[in-house]
Design a binder for these strands. Structure first.
Lengths: 361, 361
DNA sequence: CTGTTAGCGCTTTCAG
DNA sequence: CTGAAAGCGCTAACAG
């Protein structure tokens, strides 16, 4: 052993260049096939061969080249995720859930954001060819998502884009319509009779469905819908417009929590009390919802769980292979109503004068 | 053309199996080499060849197989990121910044979390071999990070683990010590004389350095340190313990914003006013910091920007190649003091009776 | 049980 | 300007 080589000191080969399976075979005096076998724990192998191989691996610090491996096995053990964006709690929770599930199955995750652009979605998808075994596509636009599924060709794809009408494609979607109805009904049940809606970005599928659900659940009133884009600032602006109305609403259903929070802030600034003067309900149940005062009633979506399910669904498809039973089901996630202070019943609300001097967090 | 094949209708080949470069060559009546040339825009190519190739590509919906390509070019155009966790705003912001930078340079991102475990960190690192051109490693433990850099062998690695003493390795770190000193000095400048510290998890490098910086900046007082773990709940517990002290502190420096918020909540519940009775300063400047009341003074770290810098640094290393000028610099990010209400000067604080009835968000 | 060998899909000399 | 052929590192028959 050439002790003059620095790294030879700790019994390792100089790592000028990463060792290949051939180097290992050579050093262990066996064929590459045997090395491969040992490393993949496949066949029966003589204990002595195994030892020699493992020693060589150790000595050379050999790490199999996944790229090469997947080229020959045509498996990558990686799943691709295409998101419209990476900003905000929704996506980070989703990724976390997916990562957890992926790890549990020994898969890798490769994430790409498309910035909501259909072209970019497709570009991202293409660039994943040969890099992943399957994909999960989130897109606020039905078209992009479906297109993506087409482009993918034989690669399994799970759609998670909020639409329920993914006929023929494996997908997971939130029951946006049903949840919106639940929101309105809850507001009515707590005594509100003039309910407004701050909707999400135009053209966004989920926003459309929630708005539609809202409208369909109204009783004795016309829809009062103001545009938003899922940001807190938009919620603030929308609420300001609502306040300027001749007939102010006594309740607001915001298409997500961040807008609900923005609206609450606007109300507060205007001296309009929540929930006494106006009730507010959000959607998502971001952690923040329980931290503000009044705490925010909302429709909880277990995002990480959705991510997990998406991954497991996809893994199922991958394992089934192209000849597996065709999976065309749309799994539905039903948001859960979480009642908090912001929609406390109108009649009892007035008496909720708990420690008015406290500095709410 | 076989019009009976469904997809032949829109002028495409049946996509039973993804087309390879050979299929394209065959259909275009050229060699695979020419196809490769056209696709890589390399050599000069006859216009007619180019056309034929592009037509074939279009017809076959050919997408190059990145895995195969990288096997022969030994480039992957992908950078790997190993994080201790994926939970919370810090990491999502970091990933967002990294993604932005990666996209800007036409690179992909592959993220893996190690759950803080050194073994897992190494495993993740190994599994990235051949999949990435370089890595960014975040680890709260110096050891894991350094080990990782070793294991990586010839692969460029940028460390982002909070330690400043990464002698000999390219790295990016927050000036935790300096920022902690700034926090203490700010508290003193606003009249506080008995400053406590809620520290981060034991064994966490950043937590250690912040605590040390805190202690070093004290004047005329002994350190008052209570343990935390970066969660809001820990901040709450820690504050409760501080309140039980014989001599209550008149200021608290929490090692991050979430703990600061938890502490504020605890103070509020105990009827202790902030900032009048006790000032609170956090670290990070999460969005929430500006939304609570009182708004939270904190040390802002531009996380997305850090992510961007990490990626660009790594890309630089990758392009420089193994023979590039050795880069052993530690880039330092200095947090910025953002003064808000939670540390308003003691003497003026009393008069800040702005609209006490407002429902703070 | 182990070695030989033919690819996986692509890039890249090296000759025409 | 274009084609033939040699790999990149690994796996998986197929023989021994």
């Amino acid at each position: 052993m050439d002790v003059s080589t620095p790294s030879a000191v700790n019994g390792h080969a100089p790592a000028a260049k990463a060792a290949t399976i051939r180097d290992v075979a050579e050093r262990a005096q066996v064929s590459v096939a045997s090395v491969s076998r040992v490393l993949n724990g496949s066949d029966a192998i003589t204990e002595s061969t195994r030892r020699r191989v493992l020693d060589a691996v150790e000595y050379l610090r050999y790490v199999p080249h996944v790229g090469a491996r997947s080229l020959s096995t045509s498996r990558t053990d990686t799943i691709g995720v295409i998101l419209p964006d990476l900003y905000g709690e929704f996506f980070s929770e989703l990724i976390r859930g997916m990562d957890l599930a992926a790890r549990a199955h020994g898969k890798h995750l490769i994430v790409s954001s498309s910035h909501g652009d259909t072209e970019e979605t497709l570009a991202a998808l293409r660039s994943m060819r040969g890099r992943v075994d399957g994909m999960i596509v989130l897109s606020p636009h039905l078209r992009a998502a479906n297109l993506a599924a087409d482009v993918a060709g034989r690669m399994p794809v799970v759609l998670m884009n909020g639409g329920l009408d993914e006929a023929g494609r494996p997908s997971i979607a939130i029951d946006n319509h049903g949840a919106a109805v639940t929101a309105v009904e809850h507001l009515r049940a707590t005594g509100r009779r003039r309910i407004a809606h701050i909707r999400g970005a135009a053209g966004n599928l989920e926003a459309d469905i929630r708005a539609e659900g809202y409208a369909s659940a109204l009783v004795d009133q016309e829809p009062i819908i103001v545009e938003g884009d899922f940001t807190q600032a938009a919620g603030h602006r929308a609420a300001t417009r609502l306040l300027a109305l001749d007939q102010r609403p006594d309740a607001v259903f915001a298409a997500n929590d961040m807008m609900a929070l923005g609206a609450m802030l606007a109300f507060q600034e205007a001296g309009v009390r929540c929930p006494e003067d106006v009730a507010v309900i959000g959607f998502d149940d971001v952690p923040l919802a329980a931290l503000v005062r009044p705490t925010l009633t909302t429709l909880r979506v277990n995002i990480a769980e959705m991510g997990r399910r998406g991954v497991e669904r996809l893994i199922g498809l991958v394992q089934a292979g192209p000849n597996g039973a065709p999976d065309s089901a749309c799994e539905i996630v039903r948001p859960l109503l979480v009642e908090r202070q912001s929609t406390a019943a109108a009649e009892t609300a007035g008496s909720t004068t708990v420690n008015p001097t406290a500095q709410p967090l």
